[in-house]
Amino acid sequence: MKKSLLIATLVVFACSSMFLLSSCAKREVVVEEEEITAVPGPEVEITVEEEAPMEVEEEVEREELAEIEPLEEVELAKVEEAEPGERALRAARFEGESIYFDFDKSFIKPEYRSILEEKGQFLKDYPDVRVRIEGNCDERGTNEYNLALGERRSTSAKGFLTSLGVSADRIEMISYGEERPLFLGHNEEAWGQNRRDDFVIIKE
């Protein structure tokens, strides 16, 4: 009985982490696709790829939206206390939980401290892990200001983690400003979801 429960738990872990990892992997792939040939010296022609990017973008949006779904499964998994796969589980939790901000603010709200503390503990327990914090904003305000605001949001989280003793060189930051909304609506519900830091493991 216990054994089957354990197996079931493992399956849930495996599925949820697979899902998260695969959706992350897809996101990585998309970023790769977006990369163009680097332009080292001056006056190098940039190659123009003729593709129909419309479908790609739509897929990306759908996938990004889909990322919100597995949260429930992660919650379920949290209850279990199994040792095997603990790292995968904690990695999934690290990536699955974002923290959210007030409009035009970049300070860490008290309710997200415990989440960040958990992330900090994860990073301390697995010193080989490197991560990226992605700062995001809602659509209001200018792209330029929001890029800076998103940078400040990722800086805030990084500062919190380093104050817990995580080495700063393990944490990369990027700001997407208002360019990558998770919710596409034009209301407070959507905005609130878009004012966030996402956490991505870039090397395990």
């Binding site: 680097a38 332009v39 080292p40 001056p42 006056e43 940078e151 930051m173 700001s175």
Partner: peptide, 26 residues
Amino acid sequence: RNSGTVLFMHDMIRGSVTKISDRKGL
């Protein structure tokens, strides 16, 4: 780019593109 934001200069006559600033961060 993957690393974040990069400032480019585009020569509108030749069509060539030069990277002006890709410092860490913004």
